[in-house]
């Protein structure tokens, strides 16, 4: 499903956090959002998935006007793996994942056999079958993130938004999470910190600086030494990694 977010403006108090940002995601495209901490990546994503209301601009998911539709309607097509998933109560992993069916359920409808099959499939994809009855709060950061991903898969979205999904995760989990998302074959918009991961997984990149889209294009076009330097204020040289044959980055040289 295509996402078209046009000319978004977000103001908090007097500060303008997002200035005239437009983002497009084509059908089944994996689009990355890069930029330094505090540049407005999360805010931009939040204004797309209705957690924040932008002052102006429009967001369309296919034909669906996201900003004017109900949360329920939007959540049937759009899934989000957020940054903070702490809570003060405990659920089992399976209960947590089952909550992903909420958008497709009426208030009084109970979960049917096919809902459990969808949950089963998501647990398999995220390799969480053995975690079913484990308590969510007892899991490690990487496991928690996989549970949230499973919950989002269960939502059966046509577009998935990920807000720094690999934060605090070790290398193996970073790869696991992103590969799992890539295999879903749906449109993805993900804020990422690791540029090499961005090169590996993204079909298209948007670079955000001070609330504006600084550059966009294919990863090789965007990730030039000049752009990286401008974004992160650090000296950087790029090279082709002899082993992976992909773009690599050498910082501080």
């Amino acid at each position: 499903m295509e996402l078209t977010a046009k000319e978004l403006h977000v103001r908090m108090g007097k500060k303008e956090i997002i200035k005239n940002a437009s983002v497009f995601v084509k059908n089944k495209q994996f689009v990355g959002l890069i930029g330094p901490n505090g540049c407005g990546k999360s805010t931009l994503l939040k204004s797309i998935y209705k957690s924040l209301t932008p002052q102006s601009g429009s967001v369309f998911l296919g034909d669906l006007n996201v900003l004017k539709s109900s949360e329920k309607k939007v959540s049937q097509h759009l899934g989000v793996v957020g940054q903070f998933n702490e809570m003060s109560f405990d659920l089992t992993v399976e209960q947590m994942v089952l909550l992903g069916r909420t958008p497709h359920k009426k208030l009084l409808e109970s979960d049917q056999a096919d809902d459990y099959e969808i949950v089963e499939e998501a647990l398999r994809r995220t390799r969480l079958q053995d975690y079913r009855t484990r308590s969510y709060l007892s899991l490690s950061g990487g496991e928690k993130q996989r549970v949230i991903l499973a919950r989002t898969i269960v939502q059966q979205p046509q577009l998935m938004i990920l807000d720094e999904p690999t934060n605090h995760l070790d290398i193996r989990y970073q790869f696991e999470i992103l590969s799992c998302v890539k295999q879903l074959g749906i449109s993805v918009l993900a804020a990422l910190h690791d540029l090499e991961l961005a090169v590996m997984y993204c079909d298209y990149l948007y670079a955000v600086k001070d609330g504006e889209i600084y550059a966009h294009g294919r990863p090789e076009e965007v990730l030039t030494p000049e752009t990286v330097e401008a974004l992160y204020q650090i000296k950087c040289q790029t090279y082709i990694n002899p082993v992976t044959k992909r773009l690599g980055f050498a910082y501080g040289v």
């Binding site: 998935y49 209705k50 957690s51 109900s70 949360e71 329920k72 309607k73 939007v74 959540s75 049937q76 759009l78 899934g79 989000v80 957020g82 903070f84 998933n85 809570m87 003060s88 109560f89 659920l91 909550l99 992903g100 909420t102 958008p103 989002t152 939502q155």
Partner: peptide, 13 residues
């Protein structure tokens, strides 16, 4: 129980 942020993404205000 999940909090406002996650609830919105599951379609509940």
């Amino acid at each position: 129980l999940l909090g406002d942020e996650s609830a919105v993404t599951l379609g509940i205000n």
